[in-house]
């Protein structure tokens, strides 16, 4: 990693996009599951939590990257945690000031962003080894990927669980909500269902590639 300092790799589209799909923190790396499931019973909460995490992720990545040459190895984790906790506290106050309702809905889970392994993981494995701009771009990607995942969960849960989206009724009065979706089991079921969908798509793609190869071999 030492030579990373000497030969910085250029920022590519991939630096940003990687976090959204290929290394999606929730669906692929299975990190940060606690907020991903706990607060996604409405789309609003999902967006709030996603943006809060994005903010903490970007800020802490920037600061860690900035200080990366100053922080001694032995105390790096402690430093990262303090930095992250700082930004989480800031977000906590900010949300409290912006919307009481959102603050009450998210509850302790805003503060629990500290324990979200996505953020510490980024600081440790990326920001501490890369230049500020690159770290920030990467953190942005990861943060948006995280928010995207939360939205995937939140939308399904809100639409099925209360028949609304962002609080607006979708199907009218007569819709029977599937309450289980906004309850804890629903969180598990919805993320399980998404993962099933992804692995089904992946398998289908692989099967298609295999088939193509076979036909290619047969004809060639």
């Amino acid at each position: 990693m030492a030579d990373l300092h000497h030969k910085p790799t250029p920022i590519t589209m991939d630096t940003f996009l990687r976090g959204i799909w290929k290394e999606n923190p929730v669906f692929v790396m299975l990190l940060g599951l606690c907020p991903a499931l706990a607060v996604t019973n409405t789309t609003m909460n999902a967006i709030g939590m996603g943006l809060a995490t994005l903010f903490v992720l970007v800020c802490s990545s920037a600061l860690v990257s900035l200080l990366r040459s100053v922080i001694p190895k032995q105390v790096r984790i402690a430093s990262y945690i303090v930095i992250i906790a700082t930004f989480v506290t800031i977000v906590d106050y900010a949300i409290h000031a912006i919307s009481l309702e959102l603050y009450n809905a998210l509850g302790a889970f805003i503060q629990l962003i500290v324990a979200n392994c996505v953020i510490l993981g980024r600081a440790e494995s990326y920001a501490s080894k890369n230049r500020v701009t690159k770290s920030v771009v990467n953190a942005f990607g990861i943060g948006i990927g995280f928010t995207f995942a939360l939205l995937c969960l939140g939308t399904v849960r809100e639409v099925l669980g209360s028949g609304t989206i962002l609080g607006y009724s979708l199907f009218g009065e007569s819709f029977q909500p599937w309450v289980v979706m906004v309850l804890p089991p629903g969180g598990f079921f919805v993320i399980g269902a998404w993962l099933l969908l992804f692995s089904w798509l992946k398998e289908r793609k692989q099967r298609k590639i295999l088939k193509q190869e076979e036909t290619a071999r047969a004809t060639g």
Binding site: L30, P185, G186, G187, F188, F189, I191, G192, L195, L196, S199, W200, E203
Partner: peptide, 14 residues
């Protein structure tokens, strides 16, 4: 094969 791995763990947890 498609439910092997984490998907099944989540369903179990559910």
């Amino acid at each position: 094969s498609i439910s092997r791995g984490s998907a099944i763990s989540f369903m179990l947890a559910g």
